[in-house]
Every structure is written in C-alpha cells, then in structure tokens.
Simulated assay, not measured.
Amino acid sequence: MSIGNSPEDDRPSIGRALQQARIAAGLTVEEVSSSTRVRIPIVHAIEEDDFSRCGGDVYARGHIRNIARAVGIDPEPLVERYDGDHGGRPAPTPAAPLFEAERIRSEPRRPNWTAAMVAAIVAVIGFVGFTLFNGGDDKPSNTAQVAEGSKPDKTAAKPTTTTKPADPPPVPSESAIAAAPRDKVTVKLGASQGKSWISVKDHNGRLLFDGLLLEGESKTFQDKERIDLVLGNAGAIELFVNGKKLQDRFEPGQVERLTYTKGDPEAG
C-alpha cells in the first residue's frame, strides 16, 4: 500500500515559487534586479534555490523579501520556509555593554543652560542690591545734599545692569547625540517606520548586534574606527551618525550595507 505525499511536499520550493510569480507577473530577471537592487546572478541563483551567493542568512532573507514584493506575493511564508530549512533564525545578540554604558552616561553631560541663566540673574540682582545698600551707608551726607531731580538717575541705572543676563547663552558645541566623542564613530539606529532586521559589526569584524529592531526601539553603537551596518528594511530606520541625523533616502524593504567612520558621516 503506497502513501501519497503531504500537501506541504507538493508545494514549490522557494526559488520555484518566486520564479513562477515573476513569470505570472510578466517580469524579466533584469526588471526584478533593477527594482530590488539584487544583482542578476543572485536572482538567477535564488530561483534555483541556491542561496550560497547571498552572503549569509540575513542577506538571503532580505533578498527573498524584496523579490517577493517585486513579483507581487507575500514574502513571510517564504522567509519562514527558509528559516525552517536553514536551522531557524538566530537569537538576537545584545549590544556590547561598553556601548550601552556610553549611552547611559551621556545624559548628565548635557549642560543645563536654564539653571545657569537663573543663577546668573540671581547673582546680578544680589550684586546690585548689595552695591546700593552699601553705597547708602557709606555716604549719608551726600544723600542729604542731592537734589530731587537726581533720584531718577539711580533707578535708571538698574535696567542697564539687569539687562546683561538677558543675553543668550553660548550655543553648546556638542552634537545632536550627547557623548558622541570626536575620536570615535557613534551610530544610533531607531526603528521609526516599522521593524527591521539589522546587523552591526566593529572595525575588527566583531558582531555587536544581529537581530530584529522593533518599531519604537533604538540602539546606539560606538567604535574607535568604523561601524559596519546591514539594514534588512532600511526604509524603516532613522539614522544618526556622529551626532548628525541623516536624511531619509531608503525605500521600505530595501536592504542596505553601510559603513561609517569618524567625522562627517559618509556611507560606504
């Protein structure tokens, strides 16, 4: 007695499903490559279920999602099948304690300009009051001989003295991210438009983070030379590099590989 295959065994493979959807949509491999920025040889390899040219599981998942969206099918079942065939998705690695500590210690370094201005005003008022009080005690005879018209002169001097604290305080030279030292590269990632799978490495290639950044979450990383990033859904990420917010320039679902060094941020 023979037993037939289960419905799951009859499903086309990931590559076959993408190829059938592309053909049904009337698209060529070149058109899919142009819209997803996945190179043509990699698109061919994925349609043949060869993921070795993707450069790793994170890239493979991103390519599957981008191609699936381009040909008009839901990418999540295909990504789940990929995870099942390749041992599942790895558990997120927490950021190195060094970088979290830098971010936590950053808040006290912000100068409190409001408190400084209030203290300056109080000091000036106290100085003016002390000067007027002592001047009246030291020269009582002069007070009696001053004509009535001279009294407004003393009160007129007060606005001139008290207006000094009104000058705006100097603008702090610190960058938008506090504790972003000039001798290091500091990168802050915030998932403002949805979740995104991200991978972060330092200049030695050491993995600092590899996992899912949920919407509303943020991570900050530092290194003395270089930070390498892989963004699985770059359009969802708000990016700050060395205290400077980068303008949004990525599309939802777009996979980006970026490198940043010290100074004015430049994408690698």
Score class of each variant (00 low, 15 high):
A95E: 03
T161S: 11
A101L: 06
P77K: 06
R103H: 04
A180R: 06
A147E: 10
A157I: 05
A119H: 02
K164F: 13
D153A: 15
V79H: 00
R110K: 02
G84T: 02
K201A: 02
E76V: 08
W197Q: 01
R109C: 03
S173I: 06
R103M: 04
G136W: 14
A157R: 09
N134A: 13
T160N: 15
S175Q: 02
A115Q: 14
F99I: 10
P181G: 02
V122S: 13
V118T: 10
A166V: 03
D167M: 15
A156K: 09
A101F: 08
P169S: 11
P108W: 01
R109V: 13
P75W: 04
T186E: 00
P159C: 08
E80C: 12
A157G: 12
T186K: 01
S196F: 02
A119E: 02
T114L: 08
R81W: 04
P97A: 02
A123W: 14
A156Q: 10
E76M: 10
A144L: 07
A91S: 12
G135C: 15
L78I: 01
A115I: 04
A180W: 00
D167F: 04
S199M: 15
Q193T: 11
R109T: 05
H86W: 09
P159H: 07
E80Q: 07
R105H: 10
S173D: 05
A120T: 03
A115E: 02
A144E: 15
